[in-house]
Write a protein that binds this DNA or RNA. Sequence first.
RNA 1: GGCGACAUAGCCAAGUGGUAAGGCAGCGGUCUGCAACACCUCCAUCACCAGUUCAAAUCUGGUUGUCGCCUCCA
Length: 471
Amino acid sequence: MNQAKPIKLYNTLSKSKEEFVTVEEGKVRMYVCGPTVYNYIHIGNARPMIVFDTVRRYLEYKGYDVNYVSNFTDVDDKIIKKANEEGVSASEISERFIIEAKKDMEDLNILPATTHPKATEEIEGMIEMIKDLIEKGYAYEKGGTAYFRTRFFNEYGKLSKKNLEELEAGIRIAVSEEKEDSMDFVLWKPKKEGEPYWESPWSKGRPGWHIECSVMAKKYLGSKIDIHAGGEDLVFPHHENEIAQSEAANGEEFAKYWLHNAFLNIDNKKMSKSEGNFFTVREISEKYPLQVLRFFMLSAHYRSPINFSKELMESSKNALDRILTAINHLEELTKITEEKPLVEDELKLQEEFKNYINKFEDSMDDDFNTADAISVIFEMVKVSNTKLNKESSKTLIEETYNNISTLCNLLGIITKKKEELLDKEIEDLIEQRQQARKNKDFNQADQIRNLLLEKGIIIEDTREGIRWKRA
RNA sequence: GGCGACAUAGCCAAGUGGUAAGGCAGCGGUCUGCAACACCUCCAUCACCAGUUCAAAUCUGGUUGUCGCCUCCA
């Protein structure tokens, strides 16, 4: 366990960087608000998934045992609307897009959560918590709807730094007459015609959005968790309301650290369907390997807004290729170099790489500064490209290969798939091209190269031999 | 209207008091049958104004600009 160096993370609750100390030593309980599944996930959904997956990987790297929970909201107005449009049940829609979301997540190299709860499978727990809140006086029922009595929770607004008076002044929606107070929010609402519903003491209906996360977090992680994360738009009202519900019901602090990622914009504008600047992860995957999207997302700090564009994807693709090329190169060197004692310069290099790893960790320890961490990888790539060759000691080559790959894996920006790509046909063609080159038949050689290019294989003649990669 | 964030090269992006990391693109080279890869070289004084300090991109005040939340949008 390498927790000697502490992690500092920015806590929305205190608006400052704090040293990370877990509730229980060596263990991290982490909850990340997941998507509402009414369509393929979009690239905006992908940002928190990628960012917090990276956080999770790093915490595990540091030796923590991480219990990572991320939900699917599978009952919601948008899902019902889509279901009605297609003339199918709401669950048919949600089930379908959960499957699709999981596919995209796998391609984004996002590790499966310890648990992926679904709201509709946790209704019983939600009813229990609402009952509890009503008993404790923090909630009430009116006409089949259960409301949370916001004013009874003294600390309401502590996350978003809003106070009830300001909020009330800013109210822009029609306030239900039933509410005791305009700031009260819904815990349970009765069904409308044609909507899915569950039985409850108050009405046939369904839970409000906020109660879902409070209940799922408690069930799978306990009443006090370490990290609660999500997009910054969730700070208010979603997370504020979660705090109110959970802390009112459980009588203790809900989450120690609140992490929020900034938004992803398109051409400096918020992505939205109505603006026509909306991209699903699936669409992007048709043009780029999703590692590129992941790399792009991690190339800025998670609390800074990032702007998505084709140009930046191209830039990211080229940058990532530089790293991948270096790793492939090292891998080949491991096959042709010889085992021998390290000479003095190599010992120095070994030391240098150790320093780079430290630097990488320092960056990640500082509120998960992935942009800085990536720059360290580039520095390692540079040194590797410049100083290592087929005369180097195998030991050093292997170490360097492992070091760089480990850090890249930590960020999830590389996948190990090359083996499956190797097939007989490609190897034969490469061999034929070599023969042609030997015979100085460059026309033939170029033809074969073009043929391979059509199949998506790029050939490179390097000092150490032929190399190929997927376009 | 209330609350908040941000402003670093053509593009992206680190850096929060000691004199500007890294990547992409571009220029000029080396290597190469060619191409690609790789390597070498070049490419900014940090929105503006004023202040604090021996010293500021980094702190303070102001100006301008961009963006977000206050609408069950990540």
